[in-house]
């Protein structure tokens, strides 16, 4: 995709670093969308350059701000930890070695208000761009640049066809799609990045499929 003028002059953001601050906010935002509930607990594991420099870049503040739904230009980012306390979001930070991954990577264990738990791993890959690489041990590639549908379903024939048929009927065009599974015949996770927003009514139809355990949508990150 050719760059836009606003990729060069922009984004409007809270400093100091597009990768370590703005990108971290976006990782938090997308993790929040994947949890699909108000988070109440976040165990945050910082890898590489994130672990080395998070204090000076406010990476920790930025991640927590994103988890609470604050945008990259929200001036409350520096006070994110106090805000989290006030909102009942418990956070902890630790260093971790995630192995051969991007130096700006983080693993976040989240628990939501309604009890859902999810483990998300992702990287800030430069200029505020991010990539979620793992959700609950499913390998994924999720940029947050598109409308996104995430479906956890039984690994059986026809599920993807049914989902894409529902999207086609709703005139939703798929930009990227990826399916991964933990093992054959168990659970699978499908990520669809789409050009149009998937309406709640369509999401409900996906959720109503017998093979589907969980389905959620996320809007493109700004």
């Amino acid at each position: 995709m050719e760059l836009s003028a606003f990729d060069i002059i922009g984004p409007i953001m809270i400093g100091p670093s597009s990768s370590h601050t703005a990108g971290a906010v976006r990782l938090g935002l997308l993790s929040r969308a994947i949890l699909n509930q108000e988070p109440t607990e976040a165990r945050i594991y910082l890898h590489g350059s994130f672990a080395e420099t998070y204090r000076g870049h406010g990476t920790n503040l930025a991640l927590v701000a994103g988890l609470m739904g604050l945008a990259t230009d929200d001036e409350r980012i520096p006070e994110a930890l106090q805000l989290a306390r006030a909102r009942g979001l418990e956070v902890s930070f630790q260093s971790i070695d995630l192995g051969d991954v991007h130096p700006n990577s983080v693993k976040i264990e989240l628990r939501g208000k309604a009890g859902r738990r999810v483990v998300v791993t992702g990287s800030s890959v430069g200029g505020g761009k991010i990539l979620i690489t793992n959700i609950d041990d499913f390998a994924v590639e999720l940029s947050g640049d598109y409308h996104t549908v995430i479906v956890i379903h039984l690994d059986q024939p026809g599920v993807v066809a049914q989902i894409t048929t529902l999207l086609a009927a709703a005139q939703v065009n798929i930009a990227q799609m990826r399916l991964s599974r933990q093992k054959r015949g168990a659970l699978a996770l499908t990520v669809l990045e789409t050009d149009q927003e998937v309406q709640a009514t369509v999401l409900d139809l996906i959720r109503a499929m017998p093979a589907v355990n969980l389905a959620m949508t996320a809007k493109p990150l700004v």
């Binding site: 922009g10 953001m13 400093g15 100091p16 597009s18 406010g58 001036e75 200029g127 505020g128």
Partner: peptide, 21 residues
């Protein structure tokens, strides 16, 4: 300096070079 202090800036083209333009 605003950038280094977690203030609001426009990356141009990056946050680290946001003062020039």
């Amino acid at each position: 300096e605003v950038n280094a202090g977690m203030g609001k800036i426009v990356a141009a083209p990056t946050a680290g070079s946001c003062g020039v333009l």
